[in-house]
Amino acid sequence: MTVTEIASPWLTDLDPRAVDEVVARLQDAADHGRTVVIAAHIGPDGDALGAALALHLALSRRGARTLPTWGEEPLRVPAAYADLPGIDDLVAPSDIPVDEVDLLVSVDSASVSRLGALQPLLAAGAPVIVIDHHPTNTRFGTVHLVAARAAATVVIVDELLRRLDVDLDVDLATCLYVGLVTDTGRFQHATTDRAAMELGGRLIEAGVAHEELTRRLFGTRTVGELTLLARALERLTFVPEARLVHAHVTAEDATEAGAGLEATEAIIDVVRTADVAEVAMVGRQETTGAWRISLRSRGAIDVGVVAARFDGGGHERAAGFTAEGTFDEVVDRLVAVLEEVRGG
C-alpha cells in the first residue's frame, strides 16, 4: 500500500477506471489544444472557484484552451476571491462558443441545476466530466469522479494534477488552498481528515500566503456585509417543533447594503451558532424573487437529504437549494420536510 493510499482513504470512493479516463481526457485536451469549459457552480464558493481555477491554470499551461466560468450573468466575483490567480480569465456564459466546446468539466456541482445558464452545454454533445465531493451528486455527466469522503473538491483536483505530472507552483497552491480552507471551515468541519491536513501543509510549503489568505477570507467584512448581517439578525426566528432557526435578507436589502452573495455565508455562520438550533437556515432573495437557501445541521438531521427534496444538494451538515414563493412559504415547506425526515 502506498503512502497516498494510507493518507487518502477517499480515493477508494472513486472507480480507478474513471480516474484513468479523466486523466486521459484532460491530457488529450492539453496535447491537442482542445477547448475545455471548466464550470464552477452558481454562486461559487472557495472550493468551486479554487477547483475551477486550478484546473484552468494547469491545463492552459499545458496547451488546452480553457474557459473557466459559472452559469450566471454577469459574473460577480466575491470580494474575498477577487485576487485569486486566474480570476481575470473568467468567461461569461454568453461568450462561450458552444459549437467549439470539446469537453465540459463540472466542479463542485451536485446536480444539473447548479450549472445554471450553462445547462444547455449538456445537450451540445461534448463529453462531461463531473468532479465533486457531495454525496447527493446525481451523476449527470459522461464520467464521474465523486468522492463523498474527500474534504473538498480541490482535494480530488490535486490528485488529478499529480497524475498529470503538473508542478505545484504558488498560484496553483493558492487556488487549491482557498478551496480546502473554506470547505473544511478552517479545518474545523467533520470532513477534515489526515489527507486534508497533509494537503494543507504541502500547499503552505509550496508558498501559500496562509496568514494573508486567512485574513482576507475570514477576518475581513465590508460595512455592507455587516449591515446585511444586522438586517438578517433582526428577523431571526426560532421554530421550536422543527428545532429550526432561520433568518433572511431580501433583494432590496442586498441592493441597499451593496453586499454580494458571499454575505449569505457570513450570515449562516452566525445563525448556526444559536444554542437552540438543530438546523439553521438563511434565505437570500435573488432579483428574480427566488430564494437561495443555505442549510446547516449540528448532525442529527442530514440537510443534504433535506436539500435534495428541493432539487438541491450538499453534505450531511451543510447544503442548499433554490425555491420559489414567499419566504414564509419556503419555511413552511422546509418545516414539513424536516418533520418527515426526523420521523423517518
Rank of each mutant, 00 (worst) to 15 (best):
D169G: 00
E286P: 07
R235Q: 11
R333K: 10
F310H: 12
A54E: 03
G207Q: 05
P135H: 01
S297G: 13
G141W: 01
H246Y: 15
A230E: 09
A318N: 12
A48P: 06
A280T: 08
G63M: 13
D95H: 08
F321P: 03
T192C: 12
V157Q: 00
T142G: 05
D47C: 11
P9W: 06
E252W: 15
V3T: 13
D332Q: 10
H248Y: 14
G304L: 09
A232K: 15
R186A: 14
V36K: 12
E265Q: 13
D95S: 13
P85E: 01
T322V: 14
L164M: 10
L334R: 09
V282K: 01
G179Y: 01
F327V: 10
H210P: 08
A92T: 03
V112S: 09
L49I: 09
F327E: 00
P68Y: 09
V22G: 07
L121V: 07
V36W: 13
P9T: 13
L161F: 01
E205N: 07
P74I: 06
V181W: 02
V170P: 00
F238Y: 15
G141D: 10
A82G: 07
R243K: 12
D95M: 10
V223R: 13
R76I: 15
A266L: 15
A124D: 08
A51E: 01
A54Q: 07
L55C: 04
D13F: 01
T250S: 06
A323F: 15
T184K: 06
E100S: 12
L226Q: 09
A173V: 00
V249H: 14
L103F: 14
E21V: 02
V305H: 10
E225K: 07
V130L: 03
T184V: 04
V178S: 00
H133R: 06
D45V: 03
R114H: 11
L161I: 00
E286M: 14
R163F: 10
I87R: 03
A79R: 07
P127T: 02
T255S: 11
V208E: 03
A259V: 11
V154C: 03
A58M: 06
T287Q: 05
L118K: 15
G344N: 14
A300N: 05
D20L: 06
G219L: 11
T138V: 13
D269Y: 15
V19M: 14
A251G: 03
Y177H: 08
A259K: 04
V155M: 15
W70Y: 14
D311I: 15
E340S: 14
A110S: 14
P135I: 02
A318T: 06
W291Y: 09
P135C: 01
H189P: 04
V335H: 07
V105K: 15
A277I: 05
L49F: 14
E225N: 08
H133D: 03
L199E: 00
P120N: 08
A52G: 12
S113E: 15
D269T: 12
L67E: 04
E262K: 03
A336Y: 14
L180E: 02
T184F: 02
T222L: 08
V130M: 09
D45F: 09
A29W: 13
